[in-house]
Simulated assay, not measured.
Amino acid sequence: MKCIVGLGNPGRKYKETRHNVGFMVIEELLKRNGWELSKKKFNGHFVQENVNGETIILLEPQTYMNLSGESLGPLMDFYQLEPEDVAVIYDDLDLPLGKIRMRQKGGHGGHNGIRSIIDHLGTKNFNRIRFGIGRPTTPMSVVDYVLGKFSKEEKPDLDKSIQYAADAAEAWFQEPFQKVMNDYNQTS
């Protein structure tokens, strides 16, 4: 069993903001596979499907970003998932827009959603798909930036990155995370 978690904030106000790229990748995976987030439990919306004999769960926590662990932790307990069975997709200010980086462990890097997950799981050892959103180029707070929408000029890189992150997630349906990480981490 594998669980892919896209981080974001629920509600129309936050749809398509930089902080919601995790949700955007989950939405792409749903569209590609003809699935929908039909289950509402564990403070989240999720779907459970079978892909080539492997149970796949896609989860969008509905707790708001800073409390993401309050959704993922109970889901993992219920399904008896181990941290290595989970991949979390989230925005990363330290990567430029258009870059994806995968890793198997690490700190929170100041990301409150990841901090919440680490706190609830009691470990830093879980798979991550970091989705670059870059840093603001004009004077503005980080909060305003991550809760802002992408510009028209950013859309082509955004769309390409969503596709790439979804490709990597789908590859993990079939391959070990280490192999997917080696294949999909962008070197440039």
Rank of each mutant, 00 (worst) to 15 (best):
C3D: 08
V5K: 00
G6N: 06
L7N: 09
R18Q: 04
H19C: 03
V21N: 00
V21C: 01
G22N: 00
M24T: 00
M24P: 06
I26A: 01
L30Q: 11
R32E: 07
G34W: 06
K39A: 13
N43P: 09
G53D: 03
E54K: 12
L59T: 03
Q62S: 12
Q62L: 11
T63S: 05
E70F: 09
P74R: 11
M76V: 07
M76S: 04
D77R: 15
Y79T: 09
P83Q: 12
E84N: 13
D85H: 01
V86K: 04
Y90D: 02
D92L: 01
D92N: 04
P96L: 03
L97N: 00
K105A: 15
G106H: 05
G107D: 12
H108E: 14
H111L: 05
S116K: 05
I117F: 07
D119S: 12
L121D: 05
L121P: 10
L121V: 11
G132V: 02
P136G: 09
T137K: 15
T137Q: 15
P139C: 07
V142W: 01
Y145L: 01
Y145N: 10
Y145T: 07
L147C: 02
S151N: 11
L158S: 03
K160R: 15
E170F: 07
A171M: 06
W172L: 06
Q186V: 02
